[in-house]
Amino acid sequence: MKKQALILAIALGVYSTASSGGFDIGKVLEAMGQAQQKPKSDPTQPAATQPGTSQPAGNAATTTQNQPPAINLFGKTKTEDEIRIGKQVAGDLLGAAPLVKDETLQQYVNSVGRWIALQSSRPDLPWKFGVIESEDINAFAAPGGYVFLTKGLYKRLNNEAELAGVLAHEIAHVSKKHHLDLLRKSALIGMLAQSVSKEVKGDAGVQNLIGNGAEMLARGLDKEAEFEADRIGVVYAAKSGYDAWGLPTVLQEMATLNANDNRLALLYKTHPSAADRLARLGEAVGDRFDSLAAGKEFADRFYRIR
């Protein structure tokens, strides 16, 4: 532990001198893109599985067979690059927990999610939503419009407004680029750590730079980003015509659960407690929603899974 901290400290020192020399994160992420493109070696793969091809913007034109354009994480990351990163993270997460095999469920969640995303600050992203096979109680977002919730969380929801609230919180993370910011920081730190460590080599090193995409989700965001996503989430849900109290109600339910429940372990490692989130959201909302028109809850049509 101590040693790790030392390496980091050294790494940061190295960066301060290296930065003037122009430090090419793009190269690194380019390599990461190649790693991600591996399935491409199989020409029979359907087009839908190819990274980048879901992007209409001339990505393909500038992309040679095995070499996607470099990603610039610093400064302004292009939207198509953000989507490529998100796809990598999403694919990693789905490798750990696949989609629930229930087409009706998945399309229902996509309909609700996409409708809310259309009221967000980034309606044009190719939003994709999924319920994943896990009894954990959690939800995830990845850059570029990828949003997931676990079956364990879904089963606790009582109506569509609660689903909307959960999705809206995750949509807010994407619209504010919270994970992209985290990646910027961690890519930097990872790269610097690598520059002083001989242990990491070759392609494995590239993977380590951004970390396994799913690992990023295990580390979580800072608490302020979570509070902000709560504030934005309730607004997105209300803007979409849903009852604004869906997300707060889910948080209330979580506050009644034992925080030591294993299924909440990762959630509480990566998020402030439900009690803190309620308190902070309460401060922000105050009496501002008193005159809000009542939104829809749709308890009756809410799709329930076994």
Binding site: D92, L94, A96, N212
Partner: peptide, 11 residues
């Protein structure tokens, strides 16, 4: 999550 492998089929 750390050990997860990218799944093209799931994507």
């Amino acid at each position: 999550l750390k050990g997860a492998k990218y799944s093209a089929e799931e994507i």
